[in-house]
């Protein structure tokens, strides 16, 4: 049962927010997204197939591509596509915010098992693909395609910290520097999904070493996972340097200057890029208990070409963004 705590919302002054270096939505849109992300480059992140192709070209590790379905007449034959894949994920090619993603952990061609243990049938998946094609999950309702990927074999390191679901690390990358990070952990309330506004927990990670710094759910600090009871302070993100490397590499495959990179860790392959987001949300500040603006402004104050290589950018970020 969800408990509602009745309390008057506390309001702080804009000045104190500014002093805390908090980035607001209007400023994010105007001073960062509009200034550093050209409209023409959005397909790099909004079109998942294109992101994947770019990732392969630039040596960014991603989940294995199974195929895609573009037309309604192909939907019936989706079984052929996944016949040789023991598990698969269906994503809308132009989806956002994790909408329309269907994960099947194993199947026998008749019964399809979802991560939460539910079993669905051919018709359910057929309808889901049809919905994707008709644009239900795409930005602006445009006609879309369905992307089939292999499941990521999630490493067990997070299992204590997540109620089902797929924990992923979000890194905000600004002008090639990883500036802020968090890991999103699903809860019962979020229905196994890693969306913060649905009740998932965001744990802020230090850019320096990937150690947890703070954790918040529904805008409030939390110290333990509400369902598993694990203390977030014990959370360890393996392969942290590879996370940073992956995120910084993403900045080379697209001209976008300000984006979020979602990274999941595969048991065998290590960190993989899930997707990029040209309009990363602001909740990462709450998960970190810190404002993003001061970090962005530090990067903006650097002279051009201050850190020409990826390694130098990462080193600078690790030095300054704890």
């Amino acid at each position: 049962m969800k408990r509602f705590r009745l309390s008057l919302p506390r309001i702080v002054s804009p000045r104190s927010l500014r002093r805390a270096g908090v980035l607001g939505m209007n400023q994010r849109n105007h001073a960062y997204i509009m200034r550093y992300n050209r409209r023409a480059d959005y397909p790099d992140v909004d079109d998942k197939l294109r992101t994947k192709q770019l990732a392969i070209r630039y040596g960014v590790a991603t989940a294995e591509l199974i195929g895609s379905i573009e037309s309604q007449y192909q939907v019936r034959s989706f079984l052929d596509l996944v016949a040789n894949a023991p598990d698969f994920v269906i994503k809308p090619g132009h989806g956002s915010g994790g909408r329309g993603i269907l994960v099947i952990t194993h199947h026998d061609g008749v019964k399809f098992h979802k991560p939460n243990g539910e079993i669905c049938d051919y018709d359910f998946i057929y309808e889901h693909i049809s919905n994707i094609l008709s644009g239900l999950y795409s930005l602006g309702g445009q006609v879309d395609y369905a992307l089939f990927e292999r499941c990521i074999d999630f490493s067990d390191v997070y299992s204590r910290f997540s109620f089902q679901g797929v924990p992923d690390v979000r890194l905000i990358v600004f002008k090639g520097y990883p500036v802020m990070s968090m890991i999103r952990l699903a809860t019962k309330e979020s229905d196994g999904r890693a969306n913060l506004h649905q009740g998932a927990v965001g744990v802020g990670l230090s850019i320096r070493d990937g150690r947890p710094r703070f954790a918040a759910s529904h805008n409030r600090e939390v110290t333990h996972h509400p369902d598993t009871g694990a203390a977030f302070s014990e959370l360890v993100v393996p392969h942290w340097e590879e996370h940073l490397e992956l995120a910084a590499r993403c900045a080379e495959m697209t001209p976008l200057g300000y984006f979020g990179a979602d990274i999941a860790t595969d048991r065998k392959r290590g960190p993989l890029l899930l997707e990029l987001n040209a309009r990363p949300g602001l909740a990462i500040q709450i998960a970190n208990g810190q404002g993003l603006l001061s970090r962005l402004q530090l990067i903006e104050s650097l002279p051009p070409g201050a850190h020409p290589t990826r390694a130098e950018k990462i080193a600078f970020a690790r030095e300054h963004f704890d």
């Binding site: 805008n219 602001l282 404002g291």
Partner: peptide, 9 residues
């Protein structure tokens, strides 16, 4: 946002 980011102050 004055409410939302209040924990950050």
């Amino acid at each position: 946002e004055l409410m939302r980011f209040q924990p950050l102050v």
